[in-house]
């Protein structure tokens, strides 16, 4: 009886704490959510975005880890693996075996690309979950933070309208952040220093394009112009011709599917975390963080395994009299 009472009290206490955190540490308003990455600073007109910064951080970390992990191996020692090397070998071997199970013959040709996709996406996803990645930033005006600065050149021209603009802006974005207003009265927003590259369409589109072109490259390299026979197949009746055209379309749809699958999952995860932190800052975001760790891994894995599967399909000989190609729709 008293045991049950204790449990009830603990649960009530935790719930009370969670709800209380809304008042103790709660935000007044959800910070602005931007689909596009924000520019932290510009180098000669080149926009250095927060997602680009995290990309570089992931690069440095990955190459650094790889460098440290294989130092002994590159010196011709270390046949008995230890510590970090052991872990690196396990990961690489695991991915290698996975790729080999998909296409035994050509695994060495596409392995580097597949594994790099996996490691890069995984690191960029997980690094973005570290504390401070979305919250530490610099204050910029809206125009400065825009990736495609449509009005950047016009800004000086706009400045005479300053009198009307600040009032409008402050009304619109009353509690945008702790940055306040700059000298000219423009509303300042907090631009986080780091943003997950996967929540930036530039990166996901880049990976999708690489995946697409690599797939087509292998296809053409293996079969020459005969590779096109898979798509323009008019010798086997109208059904096969239609299937070929569908394959051609799906080949290009893959780019969009790749792009938005990764972007959507990671971006949505960030929004969910933000909303949960806004609703009840304590404890509530925790399970979602765990879930985002899982999503970050699974998306990296999916991107890699689909690329491998598509490359393997492109390298499969096309049977003129065979059955219709199995074509899993990416989901």
């Amino acid at each position: 009886m008293s045991n049950t009472l204790k449990k009830v009290l603990i649960v009530l206490g935790v719930v009370g704490l969670m709800v209380g955190s809304r008042f103790i540490a709660g935000m007044d308003e959800i910070p602005p959510i931007s689909i596009a990455p924000e520019v932290v600073f510009r180098v000669a007109g080149y926009p250095v975005t927060n997602s680009l910064l995290l990309t570089l951080l992931a690069d440095v970390l990955l190459v650094g880890l790889a460098f440290v992990a294989t130092r002994k191996l590159r010196n011709g020692e270390g046949l008995v693996p230890r510590g970090l090397q052991n872990f690196a070998e396990m990961s690489v071997e695991g991915i290698y075996n996975l790729c080999r199970s998909v296409d035994r013959r050509n695994v060495d040709r596409f392995f580097a690309i597949a594994a790099t996709i996996f490691f890069f996406v995984l690191f960029s996803n997980w690094l973005a979950l570290l504390p401070g990645m979305g919250s530490i930033g610099v204050c910029r005006t809206h125009e400065q933070a825009l990736v495609n600065p449509v009005h950047l050149e016009e800004q000086p021209v706009e400045s005479p309208l300053e009198g009307a603009a600040p009032g409008e802006h402050t009304a619109e974005e009353h509690a945008a952040g702790p940055c306040g207003v700059d000298d000219e009265g423009h509303e300042l927003v907090l631009v986080p220093l780091f943003r997950s590259p996967s929540a930036d369409l530039n990166m996901t589109l880049a990976l999708a394009l690489i995946s697409f072109f690599v797939t087509e490259y292998f296809g053409f390299k293996a079969f020459g112009l005969g590779y096109l026979g898979k798509f323009f197949n008019f010798k086997e009746g109208p059904i096969m011709a239609g299937v070929g055209i569908l394959e051609l379309i799906s080949e290009f749809v893959r780019i969009i599917a790749f792009t938005f699958r990764l972007f959507g999952n990671i971006f949505a995860g960030e929004v969910v975390l933000l909303v949960m932190a806004f609703l009840l800052p304590w404890l509530l975001p925790l399970p979602f963080y765990g879930f985002e760790v899982f999503v970050g891994f699974i998306q990296a894995f999916i991107f890699m395994i689909l690329t491998v599967a598509f490359i393997a399909m492109a390298l499969t000989p096309h049977h003129p009299h065979g059955e219709v190609h199995e074509h899993p729709t990416p989901s």
């Binding site: 990455p37 926009p47 975005t49 680009l52 990309t55 570089l56 690069d59 990955l62 190459v63 790889a66 460098f67 992990a69 294989t70 191996l73 590159r74 690196a88 070998e89 690489v92 071997e93 392995f111 580097a112 690309i113 594994a115 790099t116 490691f119 890069f120 990736v147 590259p197 930036d200 530039n202 990166m203 589109l205 880049a206 990976l207 394009l209 690489i210």
Partner: peptide, 24 residues
Amino acid sequence: LLISQIINFGLLAFLLYKFLYNPI
């Protein structure tokens, strides 16, 4: 940014090939 990301990936793939996949 798109081109940067593509170049970045290519470089990363090369470096990882050199320092991670190949030795391992």
